[in-house]
Amino acid sequence: MLEVKDIHSFYGKSHILQGVSMALKEGELVCLLGRNGVGKSTTLKSIMGLVKPSEGSIRFNEQELIGKRPYEVARLGVGYVPEDRRIFRSLTVHENLLMGIRNGAKKGGWTIERVYEQFPQLKQRRENKGGHLSGGEQQMLTVARTLMGDPKLILVDEPTEGLAPLIVKEVLEMLAAVRSSGVTVLMVEQNFKASIKVADRFYIMGKGHMVFDGDTEALLAAEEIRRNYLEV
């Protein structure tokens, strides 16, 4: 479904991604792990078109994504759930969800009613301003907002960052439910102990490139990689 091949991305003069490759199959929940600053978020941004890779290729269902603008990538069916959630603060919860509906998106997928059913907390808060929600509620809203556009693949950047352990569990269960509904999920995490319960497969990034690719068993077996690239 998604094939990233040897991409290089820069932020100004710093060479953040130095040949990143990865592949996702339809229906998978894949977790991208690694320490701060190794380029996990930049990988997601490169797929989304928010950062333009200078080399390599990113193919999504046989279409080349590099060179496309973010809105064009979104219209192909890629949803982006950013770090820091980036809720529209001065819009209500309901308006935030309306923002997720894309022009020309297929009917019959996620609707506001279905989102409220899946996330009853959001229904209670529907007339509240986005900026007034708690961290956990904002995380739900940002995922729900992206689902409104009926994506085939969602890119989720550090969904559990800054949340209390109980809420972390809730958010991860929500992502597992999203995957069960047929959406492929690529999620970036620092917290591998939490993500191990929900992800099918893992990538680990070192400085600017991948150092590991395997399932849960392989990850648990690869002690040295974990020591070198994950544990502090």
Binding site: F88, E95, M99, R145
Partner: peptide, 25 residues
């Protein structure tokens, strides 16, 4: 209006509006 929601969202975070599939330019 729906256009208004898009405009107000763009005041908050235009890059995010772009990533949600709206032709921000």
């Amino acid at each position: 209006t729906r256009l208004g929601i898009i405009l107000r969202a763009a005041v908050n975070d235009s890059e995010m509006v772009n990533a949600l599939g709206f032709n921000v330019p």
